Simulated assay, not measured.
Amino acid sequence: MRTESTGYIVAVCLRRGHHFSKTPSLSIRLLAGLGVEGDGHMGALVQHRYDRRRDPARPNLRQVHLIPCELFDELRAEGFTIQPGDLGENVTTSGIELAALPTGTRLHLGMHAIIELTGLREPCVLMDRFQQGLKAATQDRDADGNVICKAGVMAVVVADGEVAAGDAIEVELPAGARQPLAPV
């Protein structure tokens, strides 16, 4: 079931090769089963350097990285200098609480692209190399003491499409029992 438009794309980014940050672009092309055309994390099999060393035959569940711009606002209030692409995301969103969506949620981006959420991005040591204290600032704890990852969500591409800043995002929740996102 598709819902009405609940958010929009603030920025899109990509970068060839494996780098922490990505470069803002006018648009990006999403390719089904692969990811962002021309991006260093594009591929059907795992592209994340650490994960690829452990099991290079594993499916790539991190084809597209999304971060809500509301996180940037929170980080700026804490004194960090952050803009779209800095944390390695491909799509910066607004108006959607990404981390609260269940695994398998489909996001319809722009006119044609569809992605499916696979999990949370776990903050890593590279964040502190980018700006000291950033890793801790992108983690929190719930009332039970469990770690909450706030560094965005990961997805796979289900349907091809060109997406750009200003495009609408529509949320399609999965049918049946819903599982919360977990780090991938």
Rank of each mutant, 00 (worst) to 15 (best):
P102A: 06
G95Q: 04
V91H: 04
T118G: 09
N90S: 03
G85Q: 00
A99G: 02
G104W: 09
G95R: 04
G119Y: 08
V91W: 05
H112M: 07
R106I: 08
E89Y: 05
G110I: 07
E97W: 00
E89P: 03
R121K: 14
E89L: 01
A100H: 04
D86V: 01
A100V: 08
G95H: 02
G110V: 06
G104H: 06
E116H: 13
T93S: 14
L98N: 01
R106E: 14
G88V: 00
V91M: 03
L107K: 05
L98P: 04
G104F: 11
E97F: 06
P102K: 08
L98C: 06
P102W: 06
I96G: 04
G119A: 13
T105Q: 10
D86N: 03
T92Q: 09
E97Y: 02
H108N: 12
L98M: 11
L109F: 14
A100T: 14
A113Q: 04
A100K: 13
E89V: 01
T105P: 00
L107G: 00
E89F: 05
L120R: 09
N90A: 02
E89M: 02
L109V: 07
V91T: 05
P102Q: 04
D86Y: 07
G85P: 01
L101G: 10
A100E: 07
G95T: 07
T92C: 11
I114Y: 07
